[in-house]
Simulated assay, not measured.
Amino acid sequence: MTAERIEHRACFGGWQDVYRHTSTVLGCEMTVGVYLPPQAEHGPCPVLYWLSGLTCTEQNFITKAGAQRYAAEHGIILVAPDTSPRGDGVADADSYDLGKGAGFYLNATREPWAKHYRMYDYIADELPEWVQANLPASDVRAISGHSMGGHGALTIALKNPGRYRSVSAFSPIVAPSQVPWGQKAFTAYLGEDPAAWAQYDATALVAEAKERLPMLVDQGGADEFLDNQLRPQLLQAACDAAGHPLELRIQPGYDHSYYFISSFIGEHIAHHAKAMR
């Protein structure tokens, strides 16, 4: 799987790149942001995958989070893919929370979504294969994300024991089966079957988790979506019931934006760096 590098910028002694490649799984061209720390010039480095939220592309994280500084300090490659399939032939909806920009990191089973919306397979399998084939990456990896991407990071980590050294999230949709964003997307992509929903719901998956992966979640206390869409207390309750470790931090005054993410991204990268040593 080859790729075309379409952006290449010096950044904290390394390189912030963007690649375009053909995804067989999604049936379209995809773009992915890649930060190579200076240590990558001397040998393979561990990889932190970042999954962004609703309406985002790969650009939001690489331009707003300020993560490159910390990745350079710890010698970590950052891989930030787009949030959905794209292109003229890809199904879409007249809504910010469904269709393009809203892939929800699952494999859709209903039409017209099933043909292209297979973001779970893309993130869990195809993208790591591309990373291994094209980047100076070791086989050590971790995963993180924000909002819809926080949901994706938590569920993909929980569904793939042994794959990641650690997982973290900012403002994740922890119980999509119980909140409007998730219910809308799951009904469209997966149908009405609660069992199909549960396989992409962190609060359901944690009950059957086969490993105790270090899990860090930061949530802004002034987040406008806190009570209606995010409800981190549901993840805390599920982890308590399952005996699964969770460090849940409510950060007073912070909202849902990248101002929040940029304030704590250094601590998240340190969390992953410790686990990936």
Rank of each mutant, 00 (worst) to 15 (best):
Y49C: 05
W181Y: 15
A270D: 04
P37K: 02
E126F: 11
G150N: 02
K159N: 15
G266E: 03
P85V: 15
D227H: 13
S257T: 15
Q251A: 13
L127R: 09
T63E: 08
L248R: 00
D227C: 07
T155M: 09
V140D: 00
Y120C: 08
W197P: 01
T31C: 12
S95M: 12
L234P: 02
A114Q: 13
I156N: 01
F170P: 02
G191M: 12
R5G: 01
I62Q: 08
L135I: 06
C28R: 09
A275D: 04
Q229F: 11
T24D: 13
H272C: 12
G53Y: 10
A222M: 03
I76D: 00
D17R: 15
I265M: 04
D201Q: 02
T63C: 09
T83N: 00
R163A: 15
T187L: 15
A93Y: 10
L190Y: 14
Q199W: 11
P38Q: 11
A275L: 14
S144G: 07
P37G: 03
I261L: 15
R5A: 12
Q233R: 12
H21I: 10
L154I: 07
A175R: 15
A102C: 15
P214R: 05
H8M: 07
S166C: 09
F170W: 07
L190V: 12
A65E: 00
A40L: 07
M148D: 12
R9P: 01
P161C: 03
P112L: 11
F104E: 06
H151W: 06
V32Y: 02
L216D: 04
C11T: 06
D240K: 15
F186W: 05
G101E: 03
A198Y: 14
E111D: 15
P194A: 06
P180A: 05
R5M: 14
G253L: 13
V32N: 01
Y96A: 14
N160K: 11
A71H: 02
D125I: 14
A137E: 00
R69S: 02
V79L: 05
L106P: 01
P252Y: 07
C56N: 02
A40T: 03
F170L: 12
A114L: 05
E192H: 07
Y258W: 13
A237W: 08
G43L: 09
G243F: 14
D82C: 14
E211G: 05
E208I: 09
D92M: 11
H271C: 09
G162N: 03
H146L: 13
Y122H: 08
K100P: 04
D201W: 14
R141A: 12
I143D: 00
F260S: 03
E211T: 11
W50A: 00
C239L: 11
E224L: 13
D17H: 06
M276E: 00
A80L: 11
E7Q: 14
T57N: 08
